[in-house]
Simulated scan of single mutants.
Amino acid sequence: MSPSDWSLSAQLEKDTINIGDLPLSRVLVIKDANYPWLLLVPRRPNVSEIIDLEEIEQAQLMTEISRVGRALKELTKCDKLNIAALGNMVPQLHVHIIARRSSDAAWPRPVWGVMQPLPHDAEEVQQFISALRRKVWLG
């Protein structure tokens, strides 16, 4: 199967805003203003685990996680980055990169299920996306 056979899962499509593509992964913002929360989704079909990627793709994914994580940390001045690939609800491989603050509602617990998703302010999320694009793609 070629990468052109890839498509984003319907659930991730519904829950995110597309920021753009890196060499391997699509970068998305989760539609929840409670946390600065990004996803990286490798554009490879039928992949549910990091170990399903070729070794060179695993290395590329780590490079992309580092690049996006650094940009997110710099933009948000967060206390901690949470980076995880769980896939319990959506089996398509996706890596969460969440900027956490000791003052956020879920701290120090994981963010899942703590708060109802809060819709983004349209202007604020576009400013965030623009700033992130500048750091990640032009950086």
Results as ranks from 00 to 15, higher is better:
Pro23Val: 05
Glu54His: 13
Leu72Gln: 01
Arg43Thr: 07
Gly20Asn: 11
Asp104Tyr: 01
Glu54Gln: 15
Arg44Ile: 09
Pro91Arg: 15
Gly69Cys: 06
Glu64Phe: 02
Leu8Ala: 04
Leu72Ser: 02
Val68Lys: 03
Arg43Gln: 15
Ile129Tyr: 01
Ile65Ala: 01
Leu86Ala: 08
Asp5Thr: 08
Glu64Val: 07
Thr16Met: 05
His96Gly: 05
Gln92Pro: 07
Asp104Ser: 01
Leu138Thr: 15
Glu49Gly: 07
Gln126Asn: 13
Pro23Trp: 09
Pro117Met: 14
Ala106Glu: 06
Arg44Leu: 06
Trp37Gly: 01
Val47Thr: 09
Thr76Asn: 05
Ser9Arg: 05
Ile17Phe: 08
Gly69Asp: 03
Arg43Glu: 08
Lys135Gly: 00
Arg101Asp: 14
Arg109Gly: 14
Asp52Cys: 03
Ala106Lys: 02
Ser103Cys: 09
Asp15Gln: 09
Leu132Val: 09
Ser102Thr: 15
Leu22Asn: 02
Val136Glu: 01
Pro45Gln: 07
Glu57Leu: 07
Asp15Lys: 04
Glu124His: 07
Leu132Cys: 03
Glu54Arg: 13
Leu12Glu: 05
Ile98Leu: 08
Ala131Pro: 00
Gln127Gly: 11
Glu74Ser: 15
Ala33Asn: 03
Pro36Arg: 03
Ser103Tyr: 12
Gln127Lys: 13
His120Val: 12
Thr76Glu: 13
Asp15Cys: 06
Leu75Val: 11
Pro117Cys: 12
Gln126Cys: 08
Asp32Phe: 08
Ile98Arg: 00
Lys77Phe: 08
Arg109Gln: 15
